[in-house]
Design a protein around this nucleic acid. Structure first.
Lengths: 142, 142
DNA sequence: TGTATAAATAGAAATGATTTCTATTTAATA
DNA sequence: TATTAAATAGAAATCATTTCTATTTATACA
Protein backbone atom coordinates (compact mmCIF):
# COMPACT_ATOMS: atom_id res chain seq x y z
CA UNK A 1 0.00 0.00 0.00
CA UNK A 2 1.49 3.32 -1.02
CA UNK A 3 1.80 6.38 1.16
CA UNK A 4 -1.27 8.09 -0.17
CA UNK A 5 -3.47 5.05 0.41
CA UNK A 6 -2.14 4.91 3.93
CA UNK A 7 -2.90 8.58 4.50
CA UNK A 8 -6.40 8.23 3.10
CA UNK A 9 -7.14 5.28 5.39
CA UNK A 10 -5.83 7.27 8.28
CA UNK A 11 -8.39 9.98 7.67
CA UNK A 12 -11.20 7.44 7.20
CA UNK A 13 -11.47 8.11 3.51
CA UNK A 14 -11.89 5.25 1.07
CA UNK A 15 -9.10 4.65 -1.39
CA UNK A 16 -10.82 5.40 -4.69
CA UNK A 17 -9.22 5.67 -8.14
CA UNK A 18 -10.32 9.28 -8.39
CA UNK A 19 -8.76 10.29 -5.11
CA UNK A 20 -5.52 8.65 -6.07
CA UNK A 21 -5.61 10.28 -9.50
CA UNK A 22 -6.10 13.74 -8.01
CA UNK A 23 -3.08 13.17 -5.79
CA UNK A 24 -1.12 11.81 -8.72
CA UNK A 25 -1.94 14.87 -10.81
CA UNK A 26 -0.93 17.25 -8.04
CA UNK A 27 2.21 15.21 -7.40
CA UNK A 28 3.44 15.99 -10.89
CA UNK A 29 3.05 19.74 -10.52
CA UNK A 30 5.38 22.45 -9.30
CA UNK A 31 2.58 25.00 -9.60
CA UNK A 32 -0.74 25.45 -7.88
CA UNK A 33 -3.89 24.45 -9.76
CA UNK A 34 -7.55 25.41 -9.66
CA UNK A 35 -10.27 22.77 -9.15
CA UNK A 36 -11.35 23.31 -12.73
CA UNK A 37 -7.84 22.76 -14.05
CA UNK A 38 -7.55 19.56 -12.04
CA UNK A 39 -10.91 18.52 -13.42
CA UNK A 40 -9.56 19.09 -16.93
CA UNK A 41 -6.68 16.72 -16.24
CA UNK A 42 -9.02 14.20 -14.63
CA UNK A 43 -11.18 14.13 -17.74
CA UNK A 44 -8.22 12.77 -19.68
CA UNK A 45 -8.05 9.85 -17.26
CA UNK A 46 -11.74 9.08 -16.67
CA UNK A 47 -14.66 9.04 -19.04
CA UNK A 48 -16.97 10.00 -16.20
CA UNK A 49 -15.81 12.51 -13.67
CA UNK A 50 -17.82 15.30 -12.11
CA UNK A 51 -16.52 18.68 -11.09
CA UNK A 52 -18.24 18.43 -7.68
CA UNK A 53 -16.27 15.25 -7.05
CA UNK A 54 -13.06 17.15 -7.65
CA UNK A 55 -14.14 19.97 -5.36
CA UNK A 56 -15.20 17.57 -2.62
CA UNK A 57 -12.02 15.55 -2.74
CA UNK A 58 -9.78 18.58 -2.77
CA UNK A 59 -11.56 19.91 0.29
CA UNK A 60 -11.21 16.60 2.09
CA UNK A 61 -7.56 16.23 1.22
CA UNK A 62 -6.92 19.75 2.34
CA UNK A 63 -8.79 19.08 5.57
CA UNK A 64 -6.43 16.18 6.18
CA UNK A 65 -3.39 18.33 5.44
CA UNK A 66 -2.33 16.16 2.53
CA UNK A 67 -2.59 19.12 0.20
CA UNK A 68 -2.63 22.82 0.91
CA UNK A 69 -4.83 25.68 -0.10
CA UNK A 70 -3.26 28.73 -1.67
CA UNK A 71 -4.39 32.20 -0.55
CA UNK A 72 -4.50 33.98 -3.85
CA UNK A 73 -5.10 37.74 -4.10
CA UNK A 74 -7.83 36.98 -6.65
CA UNK A 75 -9.62 35.02 -3.92
CA UNK A 76 -10.05 31.99 -6.12
CA UNK A 77 -9.39 28.49 -4.90
CA UNK A 78 -6.08 26.83 -5.71
CA UNK A 79 -4.40 23.76 -4.36
CA UNK A 80 -0.88 22.51 -4.13
CA UNK A 81 0.68 19.29 -2.94
CA UNK A 82 3.76 19.79 -0.79
CA UNK A 83 6.42 17.27 -1.61
CA UNK A 84 8.16 18.25 1.59
CA UNK A 85 6.16 16.74 4.44
CA UNK A 86 7.51 18.73 7.37
CA UNK A 87 5.66 21.83 8.51
CA UNK A 88 6.63 24.82 6.47
CA UNK A 89 5.18 27.68 4.44
CA UNK A 90 5.11 28.74 0.84
CA UNK A 91 6.35 31.35 -1.52
CA UNK A 92 4.04 31.57 -4.51
CA UNK A 93 4.90 33.19 -7.79
CA UNK A 94 2.00 35.37 -8.91
CA UNK A 95 3.19 35.18 -12.49
CA UNK A 96 4.00 31.52 -13.24
CA UNK A 97 2.27 30.01 -10.17
CA UNK A 98 5.34 28.14 -9.01
CA UNK A 99 5.34 27.23 -5.35
CA UNK A 100 8.54 27.12 -3.32
CA UNK A 101 9.16 26.22 0.29
CA UNK A 102 10.05 28.76 2.90
CA UNK A 103 11.93 27.05 5.66
CA UNK A 104 10.77 29.40 8.27
CA UNK A 105 7.92 29.24 10.67
CA UNK A 106 6.87 31.80 13.16
CA UNK A 107 4.60 29.42 15.02
CA UNK A 108 6.64 29.32 18.21
CA UNK A 109 6.97 33.06 18.62
CA UNK A 110 3.36 33.56 17.63
CA UNK A 111 2.06 30.97 20.04
CA UNK A 112 4.07 32.56 22.78
CA UNK A 113 2.79 36.05 22.04
CA UNK A 114 -0.82 34.88 21.81
CA UNK A 115 -0.51 32.89 25.01
CA UNK A 116 1.23 35.51 27.13
CA UNK A 117 -0.11 38.79 25.77
CA UNK A 118 -3.53 37.94 24.43
CA UNK A 119 -4.27 34.93 26.64
CA UNK A 120 -5.93 33.35 23.63
CA UNK A 121 -5.81 29.95 21.97
CA UNK A 122 -4.27 29.46 18.54
CA UNK A 123 -6.20 27.20 16.19
CA UNK A 124 -4.31 27.80 12.96
CA UNK A 125 -2.03 30.25 11.30
CA UNK A 126 -1.46 31.38 7.75
CA UNK A 127 1.90 32.47 6.49
CA UNK A 128 2.31 32.92 2.79
CA UNK A 129 4.62 35.02 0.71
CA UNK A 130 3.52 36.25 -2.69
CA UNK A 131 5.90 37.52 -5.30
CA UNK A 132 7.83 36.71 -8.41
CA UNK A 133 10.10 33.69 -8.62
CA UNK A 134 13.68 33.92 -9.82
CA UNK A 135 12.77 33.34 -13.47
CA UNK A 136 9.78 35.67 -13.54
CA UNK A 137 11.51 38.48 -11.66
CA UNK A 138 14.23 38.46 -14.30
CA UNK A 139 11.66 38.66 -17.06
CA UNK A 140 9.93 41.63 -15.45
CA UNK A 141 13.24 43.52 -15.34
CA UNK A 142 13.07 44.07 -19.09
CA UNK B 1 -9.19 68.08 7.34
CA UNK B 2 -9.18 64.86 9.32
CA UNK B 3 -6.79 61.98 8.87
CA UNK B 4 -9.10 59.92 6.75
CA UNK B 5 -9.76 62.77 4.33
CA UNK B 6 -6.04 63.22 4.03
CA UNK B 7 -5.51 59.53 3.33
CA UNK B 8 -8.26 59.50 0.74
CA UNK B 9 -6.77 62.48 -1.07
CA UNK B 10 -3.42 60.79 -0.98
CA UNK B 11 -4.78 57.84 -2.88
CA UNK B 12 -6.60 60.05 -5.38
CA UNK B 13 -10.00 59.15 -4.02
CA UNK B 14 -12.63 61.80 -3.55
CA UNK B 15 -13.77 62.53 -0.04
CA UNK B 16 -17.39 61.43 -0.16
CA UNK B 17 -19.84 61.12 2.74
CA UNK B 18 -20.19 57.40 2.07
CA UNK B 19 -16.47 56.74 2.17
CA UNK B 20 -16.15 58.62 5.42
CA UNK B 21 -19.15 56.79 6.86
CA UNK B 22 -17.67 53.40 6.01
CA UNK B 23 -14.47 54.38 7.78
CA UNK B 24 -16.44 55.74 10.71
CA UNK B 25 -18.38 52.50 11.02
CA UNK B 26 -15.24 50.40 10.92
CA UNK B 27 -13.55 52.75 13.36
CA UNK B 28 -16.12 51.89 16.00
CA UNK B 29 -15.60 48.16 15.72
CA UNK B 30 -13.29 45.76 17.48
CA UNK B 31 -14.47 42.95 15.23
CA UNK B 32 -14.25 42.29 11.52
CA UNK B 33 -17.35 42.86 9.41
CA UNK B 34 -18.69 41.55 6.11
CA UNK B 35 -19.59 43.96 3.29
CA UNK B 36 -23.24 43.11 3.83
CA UNK B 37 -23.03 43.90 7.53
CA UNK B 38 -21.39 47.22 6.76
CA UNK B 39 -24.13 47.87 4.21
CA UNK B 40 -26.68 47.21 6.96
CA UNK B 41 -25.09 49.89 9.13
CA UNK B 42 -24.82 52.25 6.17
CA UNK B 43 -28.55 51.94 5.53
CA UNK B 44 -29.20 53.45 8.93
CA UNK B 45 -27.21 56.52 7.88
CA UNK B 46 -28.28 56.97 4.25
CA UNK B 47 -31.64 56.59 2.57
CA UNK B 48 -29.93 55.59 -0.64
CA UNK B 49 -26.94 53.35 -0.47
CA UNK B 50 -26.10 50.48 -2.77
CA UNK B 51 -24.33 47.29 -1.81
CA UNK B 52 -21.98 47.59 -4.81
CA UNK B 53 -20.88 50.97 -3.50
CA UNK B 54 -19.93 49.35 -0.23
CA UNK B 55 -18.02 46.58 -2.00
CA UNK B 56 -16.20 49.03 -4.25
CA UNK B 57 -15.20 51.34 -1.45
CA UNK B 58 -14.02 48.54 0.77
CA UNK B 59 -11.86 47.22 -2.04
CA UNK B 60 -10.39 50.66 -2.69
CA UNK B 61 -9.70 51.32 0.97
CA UNK B 62 -8.09 47.94 1.29
CA UNK B 63 -6.00 48.61 -1.80
CA UNK B 64 -4.75 51.76 -0.10
CA UNK B 65 -3.96 49.87 3.11
CA UNK B 66 -6.35 51.96 5.14
CA UNK B 67 -8.29 48.86 6.07
CA UNK B 68 -7.31 45.22 5.96
CA UNK B 69 -8.89 42.11 4.58
CA UNK B 70 -9.37 39.15 6.85
CA UNK B 71 -8.51 35.66 5.57
CA UNK B 72 -11.38 33.68 6.98
CA UNK B 73 -11.50 29.88 6.77
CA UNK B 74 -15.00 30.20 5.32
CA UNK B 75 -13.47 32.13 2.41
CA UNK B 76 -15.90 34.99 2.78
CA UNK B 77 -14.85 38.60 2.64
CA UNK B 78 -14.38 40.52 5.88
CA UNK B 79 -12.74 43.81 6.63
CA UNK B 80 -11.18 45.39 9.64
CA UNK B 81 -9.76 48.82 10.36
CA UNK B 82 -6.49 48.73 12.29
CA UNK B 83 -6.37 51.46 14.89
CA UNK B 84 -2.65 50.83 15.16
CA UNK B 85 -1.03 52.30 12.06
CA UNK B 86 2.36 50.61 12.16
CA UNK B 87 2.92 47.44 10.19
CA UNK B 88 1.73 44.44 12.11
CA UNK B 89 -0.43 41.36 11.84
CA UNK B 90 -3.63 40.09 13.35
CA UNK B 91 -5.01 37.47 15.63
CA UNK B 92 -8.65 36.87 14.81
CA UNK B 93 -11.11 35.13 17.07
CA UNK B 94 -13.13 32.63 15.05
CA UNK B 95 -15.89 32.74 17.63
CA UNK B 96 -16.59 36.40 18.46
CA UNK B 97 -14.65 37.92 15.50
CA UNK B 98 -12.51 40.12 17.68
CA UNK B 99 -9.27 41.24 16.06
CA UNK B 100 -6.12 41.78 18.10
CA UNK B 101 -2.67 42.93 17.09
CA UNK B 102 0.29 40.64 16.95
CA UNK B 103 3.40 42.69 17.40
CA UNK B 104 5.50 40.39 15.38
CA UNK B 105 6.46 40.43 11.78
CA UNK B 106 8.51 37.91 9.96
CA UNK B 107 9.05 40.18 6.99
CA UNK B 108 12.77 40.68 7.48
CA UNK B 109 13.62 37.01 7.81
CA UNK B 110 11.28 36.12 5.00
CA UNK B 111 12.67 38.73 2.65
CA UNK B 112 16.15 37.50 3.41
CA UNK B 113 15.26 33.87 2.74
CA UNK B 114 13.44 34.68 -0.48
CA UNK B 115 16.28 36.88 -1.67
CA UNK B 116 19.16 34.57 -0.84
CA UNK B 117 17.69 31.11 -1.30
CA UNK B 118 14.97 31.56 -3.87
CA UNK B 119 16.40 34.61 -5.65
CA UNK B 120 12.83 35.83 -5.98
CA UNK B 121 11.06 39.13 -5.36
CA UNK B 122 8.54 39.55 -2.54
CA UNK B 123 5.40 41.48 -3.42
CA UNK B 124 3.32 40.86 -0.32
CA UNK B 125 3.00 38.54 2.58
CA UNK B 126 0.13 37.25 4.65
CA UNK B 127 0.49 36.41 8.30
CA UNK B 128 -2.64 35.79 10.26
CA UNK B 129 -3.38 33.78 13.34
CA UNK B 130 -6.79 32.25 13.86
CA UNK B 131 -8.04 31.08 17.19
CA UNK B 132 -10.13 31.89 20.18
CA UNK B 133 -9.66 35.08 22.14
CA UNK B 134 -9.24 35.13 25.90
CA UNK B 135 -12.96 35.40 26.59
CA UNK B 136 -14.06 32.82 24.04
CA UNK B 137 -11.40 30.29 25.00
CA UNK B 138 -12.66 30.42 28.56
CA UNK B 139 -16.21 29.82 27.43
CA UNK B 140 -15.19 26.79 25.38
CA UNK B 141 -13.54 25.26 28.45
CA UNK B 142 -16.93 24.48 29.91
C1' DT C 1 -15.30 -15.38 -2.70
C1' DG C 2 -20.11 -13.43 -2.19
C1' DT C 3 -23.00 -9.93 0.47
C1' DA C 4 -24.22 -5.97 3.17
C1' DT C 5 -23.60 -1.20 3.95
C1' DA C 6 -21.90 3.18 4.29
C1' DA C 7 -19.26 6.15 1.51
C1' DA C 8 -18.36 8.04 -2.95
C1' DT C 9 -19.84 9.55 -7.33
C1' DA C 10 -22.28 11.68 -11.65
C1' DG C 11 -24.85 15.00 -13.40
C1' DA C 12 -28.23 18.30 -13.08
C1' DA C 13 -29.63 22.10 -10.66
C1' DA C 14 -29.40 25.73 -7.29
C1' DT C 15 -27.02 29.15 -4.71
C1' DG C 16 -25.44 33.51 -3.45
C1' DA C 17 -21.54 36.38 -2.92
C1' DT C 18 -19.51 39.48 -5.88
C1' DT C 19 -19.22 42.13 -10.13
C1' DT C 20 -20.82 44.54 -14.12
C1' DC C 21 -23.55 47.88 -16.42
C1' DT C 22 -25.72 52.39 -17.36
C1' DA C 23 -27.92 56.44 -16.29
C1' DT C 24 -27.60 59.90 -12.78
C1' DT C 25 -25.35 62.53 -9.19
C1' DT C 26 -21.56 64.73 -6.92
C1' DA C 27 -16.81 66.36 -5.41
C1' DA C 28 -13.11 68.94 -6.96
C1' DT C 29 -11.08 72.45 -9.63
C1' DA C 30 -10.48 76.89 -11.47
C1' DT D 1 -20.72 78.94 -10.77
C1' DA D 2 -19.45 75.91 -14.67
C1' DT D 3 -16.82 71.99 -15.99
C1' DT D 4 -15.44 67.33 -15.71
C1' DA D 5 -13.99 63.15 -14.08
C1' DA D 6 -15.14 60.24 -10.37
C1' DA D 7 -18.67 58.17 -7.57
C1' DT D 8 -23.12 56.27 -7.00
C1' DA D 9 -27.86 53.65 -7.25
C1' DG D 10 -30.19 50.01 -8.61
C1' DA D 11 -31.02 46.41 -11.61
C1' DA D 12 -29.06 42.64 -13.67
C1' DA D 13 -25.57 39.30 -14.67
C1' DT D 14 -21.87 36.27 -13.50
C1' DC D 15 -19.83 32.19 -12.27
C1' DA D 16 -17.31 29.69 -8.79
C1' DT D 17 -18.91 26.68 -5.56
C1' DT D 18 -22.37 23.80 -3.31
C1' DT D 19 -26.43 21.00 -2.94
C1' DC D 20 -29.34 17.30 -4.23
C1' DT D 21 -30.68 12.56 -5.54
C1' DA D 22 -30.23 8.39 -7.78
C1' DT D 23 -26.62 5.20 -8.78
C1' DT D 24 -22.20 3.03 -8.12
C1' DT D 25 -18.34 1.30 -5.48
C1' DA D 26 -14.89 0.27 -1.72
C1' DT D 27 -14.72 -2.10 2.33
C1' DA D 28 -15.71 -5.25 5.98
C1' DC D 29 -16.96 -9.55 7.21
C1' DA D 30 -19.58 -13.94 6.87
Amino acid sequence: MDNFSFSLRNMNLKVTPKRLAILDILMEETVYLSPEEIWGKMKRRFRKIGLPTVYRNLEELSEGNIISKVNHPNRKLYYYLCKNQSHHHHFICLSCRKVEDINFCAAKKINKEVKTKLKGKVISHILQVNGLCKTCSKKSDI
